[in-house]
Amino acid sequence: MRLTCPICGDRDRREFYYLGAADYLDRPVEGEAEATHRYLHLRDNPAGVTRDLWQHEAGCAAWLVVERNVTTHEILQVSLAKDEIRDAR
């Protein structure tokens, strides 16, 4: 498996660290118990396209959002997490 880091280019899987669903980027407002519960514990588990957080740990150290299809192993998109957050604001 290879990922194309927006900064470094095409790189081997072992340079990357996997964190989990990109839901971690949408932090809920403090004090909202139900939203916090959803943020921490509730995840979809689709047989298809997922959005996950990866870090180019042994490379430029950037956090990435990787969109991939877990049934076909196709990598659809890799973008910088900081850009995703900026776009959401």
């Binding site: 470094c8 790189r11 072992r14 340079e15 740990e57 042994a58 490379g59 430029c60 150290a61």
Partner: peptide, 10 residues
Amino acid sequence: VARSLIGHMP
């Protein structure tokens, strides 16, 4: 320049 691995070392 590249950041990568030498063996298991960043």
